[in-house]
Simulated scan of single mutants.
Amino acid sequence: MTDANAAIDARILQTNQRLKAAHMGFQIERRGQKLGLRGMLPPRPGSLRLKPSQQRLSLGLPATSAGLKQAEQTVKVIVAQIIQNSFDWRQYDSGSGWGRLDQIGLAQQLQAFEHHFLTEPSRLSHPASAKTTWETAYSPYLRKLEAIAQANPQLSFVEVLYATVRATEDNSRSRQVCCTALGALAKFLSVELPIDLKSLWGSYGLSQMRARTLPSDALIASTWESIPNPGWQFVYAVMATYGLRNHEVFFCDYSALLQGKPEATIRVLNTSKTGSHDVWPFYPEWVDHFNLRSIQLPAIQTDLTQTTLQRIGQRVTSQFRRYDLPFSPYNLRHAWAVRTIHFGLADTVAARMMGHSVAVHNRTYHQWMTHRDQQQAVETALNRNQLVAPGGGKAEG
């Protein structure tokens, strides 16, 4: 520590002793060559806190005798403002995101964010997927944010951001997607948020999957027979047998099926949402039962210069509704995943086939995995300990 820093620290200590004796409730701190305060302050703009809490406030004053004198005066002003209920963070915090929003500036920022999102190197190899993700998972919430900003010009960016999140339903997928989109925007704009948006996701995902009633395999097989159109029968059967997303059926390499290869794998092409990956059938017997070696895709628009992956997926959903099927297309995918769990397929392998991360897989299908693991543990214990049951004979393993 330099002599200058040691000298100013000694003066800060003396000043803080005076503030403590006067019951001001604040301390002055030196952080590098700048001075700030620490004490009980009202919630920052956009914070979900309802009561004052211990917080830091950067004054931007130099760590000098003159700066320290001004900091002591600022403490007295802030205490008076708190007593009069007139304290306003925006008088003191000049950090990014706390100023009033310039509507033209916001529109330009959103345009820049869109360009950044679509041209990131990781997305350039999957432009159709990137466009679909933007249109379905980002654009709706950014439009909502822009509308809230226009209706409330007095709000800061951070306040508008949290208001947009609160405008979505609690514990819903829309809340989760909104938090993801706005979190990415804040990161792009280098805006530091006082509350991590991930903490506002709620309990969507696990609770929803627990509540979901999946169709039985027998119902899946019998429902296929009720579809009158061979092309849509094929779409349904491929989704049931391989656990594909709605749109993925139209972007697969079916050559192994056409060539009669016994493993009957298909490859989801790079065009799709998660890139190229191979998928095996569960049940393998369904390949022949559903006549999947005869490729019969319905004739719909799949040119991604004319349509999007989202619209293709919506077409599948609308056909399910048209034929009055008793469950949604995604239930076929979830049923496939649970089926692999019952077969004992490694979770890492199943996640790869489904084109998502192991973390997402484990979170989504936690309920069934837990039951599988418990069942295996029980069977192992029973087989290892052949105890004699009361009444004679060994306990069954």
Score class of each variant (00 low, 15 high):
Q17I: 12
Q17S: 15
R18P: 09
L19F: 03
A22G: 02
R30N: 09
G32E: 07
G39N: 00
M40V: 08
L48M: 12
R56N: 12
R56W: 11
R56A: 06
R56V: 10
L57W: 02
L57K: 05
L61H: 05
A63S: 12
A66D: 13
G67R: 04
Q73R: 14
V75W: 05
Q84G: 00
S86N: 04
S94H: 15
G97T: 06
W98V: 11
G99I: 05
L101Q: 15
G105S: 02
L106V: 00
A107V: 10
Q109D: 13
Q111I: 07
A112F: 05
S122Y: 08
R123D: 11
H126Q: 14
W134S: 03
W134R: 00
A137N: 14
R143M: 12
K144I: 10
A147C: 03
Q150N: 07
A151K: 13
N152W: 07
N152Y: 00
F157S: 14
E159N: 04
L161S: 03
A163D: 14
V165F: 04
A167G: 03
D170M: 11
S172L: 05
R173M: 09
R173Y: 10
S174N: 13
A181I: 05
L185D: 07
V191P: 06
L193R: 02
L193T: 09
I195Q: 15
S199P: 04
L200M: 07
Y204T: 02
G205K: 05
S207Y: 12
R210M: 09
A211F: 01
D217S: 12
D217Q: 13
T223K: 02
V235F: 05
V235T: 03
M239Q: 15
L244A: 06
N246H: 10
H247T: 13
L258M: 15
K261G: 05
A264L: 06
V268K: 00
V268M: 09
G275R: 01
H277W: 01
H277F: 03
F282I: 10
F282L: 13
V287L: 06
F290C: 03
I295N: 09
Q301K: 11
D303I: 04
L304R: 08
L304C: 03
T307E: 11
T308F: 02
L309C: 10
G313S: 05
G313Q: 06
V316R: 04
S318K: 15
D324H: 14
F327C: 00
N331Y: 02
A335E: 01
R339I: 00
I341E: 08
A346N: 13
A346H: 10
M353P: 04
R363M: 12
Y365N: 01
Q376I: 10
A381M: 14
R384T: 13
N385P: 00
A389K: 15
A389Y: 07
A389W: 11
E396F: 08
E396K: 06
